[in-house]
């Protein structure tokens, strides 16, 4: 399939569909010490994140959300990737690093979907930092 004539279809690779259908880390961390929730105002996609940080290491993170395949798959892949990482390293990630995790080209109109989970994750970390 040609990239130029079907640019959006390129996003829906098997890996994305897998994460969409069976998201990793879905749910709520019970003894969480960081929480956040946000919606994409344009479309109503919604992500909530709970995380457990110990000694500045992300011990556990879970999300629940309603939304498109891209936002769910992206959040799933992001959470999978950051468990065991230092909070400071997660906060320091730039958008491109998050998009690179997906391994598929995200078209312009869908960047917000792909980055919603990252935005909420950072909000949850900020909440955790604020309580320290």
């Amino acid at each position: 399939m040609n990239n130029k004539t079907f640019p959006n279809e390129q996003m829906y690779q098997e890996i994305i569909l897998d994460h969409f259908r069976n998201p990793k880390n879905s749910g709520v961390v019970k003894n969480a010490n960081g929480h956040a929730h946000d919606v994409n105002t344009a479309c109503g996609d919604e992500v909530g994140i709970t995380l457990l940080v110990k000694k500045d290491i992300i011990k556990d993170v879970k999300f629940d959300g309603k939304g498109c395949a891209i936002s769910i798959a992206a959040t799933s892949m992001l959470t999978e990737n950051i468990i065991g990482n230092k909070v400071a390293d997660v906060i320091a990630m730039d958008k491109q690093e998050v998009l690179d995790l997906l391994g598929v080209p995200i078209s312009g109109m869908r960047l917000k979907c792909a980055l919603l989970g990252f935005k909420v994750l950072k909000m949850a970390i900020v909440e955790y930092e604020g309580k320290k």
Binding site: F6, E9, C43, A69, M109, R110
Partner: peptide, 26 residues
């Protein structure tokens, strides 16, 4: 099995412009 946003993105590949979302009627 296909969220509205993803439907609209794939339709766009075919030149089809439709709206997805809550259409300002949450």
């Amino acid at each position: 099995g296909i969220p509205p946003h993803d439907v609209a993105s794939i339709l766009d590949d075919h030149g089809v412009a439709v709206r997805s979302g809550h259409h300002c009627a949450m």
